[in-house]
């Protein structure tokens, strides 16, 4: 999926997260995760984000995550929403979202 514009999804309320997706500055995927629970869950959050992006076929993007202790399912939802908003895709591939 091609990232063609900046997007934002989510909130900074507790148990949620804010996801920002932009076209890549350089080639590849640049991911930054900031979290209130970064020491405990930073690696897991990053893994969930990367897996979600990979299923959507996002390989070139700048992705910023501000996590406020969200569950994995919220992370997936917000990342998917931000990617769909930032992409030029028209339909939704539901298989890629599960």
């Amino acid at each position: 999926m091609n990232i063609v514009r900046d997007s934002i999804a989510g909130t900074l309320e507790s148990n949620d997260l804010l996801v920002k997706v932009s076209p890549a500055q350089d080639e590849g995927l640049e991911l930054h995760v900031n979290s209130e629970v970064i020491h405990q869950f930073g690696a897991q959050i990053e893994a969930v984000v990367r897996e979600t992006l990979s299923r959507l076929g996002v390989t070139n993007a700048l992705v910023l995550i501000e996590d406020k202790g969200a569950l994995d399912c919220s992370i997936r939802a917000r990342v998917q929403a931000a990617v769909l908003r930032a992409s030029d895709a028209t339909g939704i591939d539901w298989e890629a979202l599960s």
Partner: peptide, 14 residues
Amino acid sequence: KDTARLLVYHALKM
């Protein structure tokens, strides 16, 4: 609307 739909989509599977 779009992001709520995805939140609910994933919450249903929790």
